[in-house]
Design a protein around this nucleic acid. Structure first.
Lengths: 261, 261
DNA sequence: CGAGGGTTTGAAGTGCATCAAATAGTGTGG
DNA sequence: CCACACTATTTGATGCACTTCAAACCCTCG
């Protein structure tokens, strides 16, 4: 099953720093997850870690593969998915800068619980999972940080479930826009859609046609403007009112910026 | 906000053992979560823990209450929910024997992230959350067990999301039945529904009418028989075929028995 | 320019929700 | 034990939201 998975030799690319540096360690330390890691951990990581560019379409690993690495997205977009018996893809998540993935295979007997595919050219830090496992087993502070990270993820999933069951298509789109929060200036908002609309639709659990119609509804309802991949929200509060009244978090989605895990 | 929350004094009820006993400790040790806890932890717990009976309708705590206790369900049913701005209830989960809840408030700044209501008369072990917090901070093995528990919960949520988006009403009902797995004998299955059908419907994110129609559809499709709260599945494999082909877990829901957390 | 994908729009179909009414089931007081 | 009230469940009719299928449009890139 691992034929599709890349042979991940240690290679450094021009213009990229050797990860075995203070800079890389500092990059890692910026993540709450690694805030309390030992120097030994960083030393062990740097023996094997590498920053790699990947092209759209590349499959990083597939479900049930043995997990040797976990990944930190530096740029680009990655799709996590599972395949159903009737051949459909079930999108687990779509990730971008700052997201970590593959690390949970530690708790899945060492196998990846989903497949991962690059959907927008990406730079990814590839790290040995064994070092991570060792660290959480030895460093209690790190284990606690990982617990916090898991709890946050769990909350997000709960919200996800609530959104699917309580919000309609255009509300889900609006909620997604609110949580992106790019280029805000006073009450209005400009957003450059991060990936193509088909992916966005599947991320939100709807068909491209429904996504398109949902957007046009938002145009009428709250004066949202769409120019290609750029979206302008004239009044943030108005959008929030439209989106959040069916939601138990109230408008708290706005405050909870898509945080780096 | 805490006016609805019970004043939980230490009281023992007739017929119930004082929890400060080897029996209670053994009861706790049967949970994977407590398998590696220190004797000090159990000692601290027994200073404050109590087994209490609760009646249907009782609200244990509400969302945003400060969390002093976590709970282990010994019998009965509990509903976890959140309230939306427009007054609807969003059901987070419905739990029974062996489930633990309230413990995640450790990672929510000490507040309950949902409300809890008894939906079927219950006996519940009430435990001080401070002791738990102290233990995961001091006992790394315990923290690892909690990580496993969180990871398992996360998996279940992922599956939940998938089911909501990919399965139709009768498939979701069938899947729920498969995961209950009561009284199995060869290929057929007898199930006594654990709580009333309105609750079941809300647990599965559908209206009672839809639930009813979903059941009748299963009667036609796979010869399922309903007598009051008892359900008979003549052929387990047939149900699994009907239910699982749209699901990325394949038929693995069947194997993954609703485990004690 | 023209091929091919992504996106939008229209028309029809499906599934679940809603509303309404009938029926079954449960508990109460007489 | 029965009659009544009340609630849960079922069934029917209708409406709405999303999907599906199909065609048009648009954009990019060779």
């Amino acid at each position: 099953m691992s034929i599709l998975v890349e042979n991940t030799k240690r290679v450094y690319f021009k213009g990229m720093s050797n990860p075995n540096t203070r800079a890389t360690v500092n990059f890692l330390k910026a993540f709450p997850l690694f805030a309390n890691c030992t120097e030994g951990f960083f030393a062990a990581l740097s023996q094997q870690c590498q920053m790699r560019p990947y092209q759209k379409g590349k499959v990083l690993f597939i479900q049930e593969d043995e997990a040797a690495f976990f990944y930190i997205l530096q740029s680009g977009w990655v799709k996590l998915y599972r395949e159903t018996l009737d051949g459909e893809q079930a999108i687990v998540d779509i990730l971008t800068t700052g997201h970590i993935f593959g690390e949970t295979s530690i708790f899945e007997n060492g196998f990846y619980p989903y497949s991962a595919e690059i959907v927008e050219d990406a730079n990814i830090l590839v790290l040995p999972i064994a070092a991570l496992k060792k660290e959480i087993e030895k460093n209690n502070a790190m284990a606690l940080d990982m617990l916090s990270s898991m709890a946050r993820y769990r909350r997000e999933q709960e919200r996800e479930i609530e959104h699917i069951t309580l919000q309609n298509a255009s509300q889900r789109i609006g909620c997604f826009l609110l949580r992106l929060r790019c280029h805000e200036k006073d009450g209005s908002l400009q957003i450059h859609l991060p990936y193509d609309k088909m992916l966005l639709a599947s991320r939100l659990g709807m068909k491209p046609e429904t996504f398109s119609r949902g957007l046009s509804k938002l145009k009428k309802q709250i004066g949202l403007k769409v120019k290609g991949a750029t979206i302008e929200v004239p009044n943030l509060q108005e959008l929030s009112d439209y989106v959040c009244y069916t939601c138990s978090s109230g408008a708290s989605c706005i405050e909870t910026k898509n945080a780096i895990k």
